[in-house]
Amino acid sequence: MKVLIVDDSSTTREMERGILAQLGCSQDEILDAASGEEGLNKVTSFDPDLVLVDGKMRDMDGVAFVRTIRGNGFTKPIMMVSSECERQRVLDAVQAGASDFVVKPFTPDLLSQRIEDLMGRPEQQPLI
């Protein structure tokens, strides 16, 4: 499973890498991007099976990122990981095309479970 992590925090990227490694992803299968712009480029070049995207980055809002790559035709699952968890925020993310929404802080177990659930979910089944 190829995973792209888009987050401007190296701490979060490192944590997510560790969790993905525990799920069986090799280091070659995990690519990360430190900005929204870099993430947009890597979505095209890497063609990941799953994208983990931060809800707030310095150069781009997570919702805008999701909307952009969905607009570019990306159909694989996207999980938004955000420290903002208001109802409207979640709705905006899902409406933009996010497949799941995880609130920071998260435990490794929680994120692992959500990724497993998401990747095992039938493709057309919506989150809500």
Binding site: S9, T11, T12, K56, S82, S83, E84, C85, V103, K104, P105
Partner: peptide, 10 residues
Amino acid sequence: GELVEMLAGG
């Protein structure tokens, strides 16, 4: 920065 963002978001 991550810590304070989590505090602010919460």
